[in-house]
Nucleic acid binder design. Structure first.
Lengths: 244, 244
DNA sequence: CGCTTCCTTGAGTAAATTCAAGACTTGTGG
DNA sequence: CCACAAGTCTTGAATTTACTCAAGGAAGCG
């Protein structure tokens, strides 16, 4: 399952140092984490954990994209989480997870054995608090996702998805058009994210292209040509939910 | 907005004492909560909080049902949370909420002013830990809900919903048929929960009746006549997700 | 009783799916 | 370097599912 062990970075040099579960830690607390961490790498498509499997480790995503998904008995699949670098896998007090965890791209994880980590959480409020923040952020995201799955049209789903990737992919200049956006998912994975079929995803993406709202560089790389048209197509309130 | 102030119960006599945010508290901690709590009541249909509104209090649901919902600009609505007695409204570190909070039935809340409550949370690990558990339970529920919204058929959605209410409504004898199940939602609210129209909800409920899987006592009260047929109709794994 | 709200049912429609075929990409071995 | 295979994506046609629109019936409330 584990392909190779990546060279382990010093926490201080870690790209996710200030966003991951360790974000609020001081140098002493960081050392405690450093002592129990190991890196594991997975190649694209590899299964990291199966639903129901006992969690022997918890982990932060260092790089790559990880998907969480659930499947019905006849194989219909729904993605229920998309983890980017600094996101966390595993929760305090949970011995197992009730979804599959898959490496969508090549992935490196910063892993902690569950039991020593949970001991550390109990003794370290900075970690406990950060875990809480991460869980609440996921809950917020899950609720927006539920609105999308339950009530948006295929076009609105695609537009929402592209708009989200636009914002996430370049957090420095979030609203500049014609920037390259890398899409780390195949059409089928986008479909599983949005509750659509891959054919519908393809059709709607090509519709947005025909409308000159987006353009393809290649299958996995896009540009947004018309940001406000894209945002209008999401179906969300034009103010993005901000009041006043 | 607030209709009347219910007589305030002693925490020790409170029906949600052992499931709510105070579940892990000892008598001393309970006293601290008791000193800052007030009760508020709302009648069915009343709005408790608007999206974006500043949270001046957080609360436990003492009795009644509270719904959390999001709305698109053209009015399409999706329920994103259904809170029953002992569930909690408001999260540590969150000044506002990004959904509407509505009393679905007559409701009594046990309210705490946000700032004193957050101070108490910081000083009381038992409360902080219980809040974490409640948030993680909600996250698990949200992920099952996403699978339902994204991938289940109308019939599977309805069956899943009824099966959930069956389990929740009588936790003593969870799997006995012909028990009365009270449904605290109107057809339109069920539709908003499931991402359907109210007509489709009505049709599928009557289909389950025609199949003699459920029976109506009246509009709001049902019996499950055939539990295994209902569970088969949910589309979920027959083992309920438990792996050895 | 009469009004309002809620629910049911039917007919026609629209949206997304399914099925099918073919084109483009990428990687591999000759 | 090319040929071929596997994987991925696009596009079209037919179908299905759930929605919309419409009407009427039942229940709850003053």
């Amino acid at each position: 399952m584990v392909l190779f062990r990546t060279n382990i970075l010093k926490c201080n040099e870690c790209p996710i140092r200030h966003r991951a579960v360790c974000a609020n830690c001081n140098d002493i607390e960081l050392n405690l984490l450093e002592n129990i961490k190991t890196y594991k790498s997975y190649s694209a498509g590899e299964r990291i954990l199966w639903r129901g499997e006992e969690l022997i480790f918890v982990a932060s995503v260092v790089n790559g994209v990880v998907s969480l998904s659930k499947t019905l008995e006849d194989g219909r699949k729904q993605m229920v989480g998309l983890l980017l670098p600094s996101d966390f896998i595993g929760r305090p007090g949970r011995k197992e997870i009730e979804f599959d965890v898959t490496a969508t791209t090549d992935v490196t994880l910063c892993c902690f054995k569950r039991k020593p980590f949970e001991k550390l959480v109990k003794e370290t409020p900075a970690i406990a608090q950060r875990l809480m923040e991460l869980a609440l952020d996921e809950l917020d995201a899950a609720r927006d996702w539920m609105l999308l799955l339950g009530r948006k049209t295929a076009l609105e789903k695609i537009a929402t998805f592209m708009e989200m990737f636009m914002r996430r992919s370049n957090s420095q200049n979030p609203l500049k058009s014609h920037q390259n956006i890398h899409l780390p998912l195949r059409r089928e994975e986008v479909a599983d994210y949005l509750g659509l079929t891959l054919e519908t995803v393809s059709r709607q993406l090509n519709y947005l292209k025909k409308m000159e709202i987006i353009d393809f560089v290649d299958r996995r790389n896009f540009q947004v040509l018309n940001i406000s048209a894209l945002q209008n197509a999401t179906g969300d309130d034009s103010d993005g939910g901000v009041i006043n």
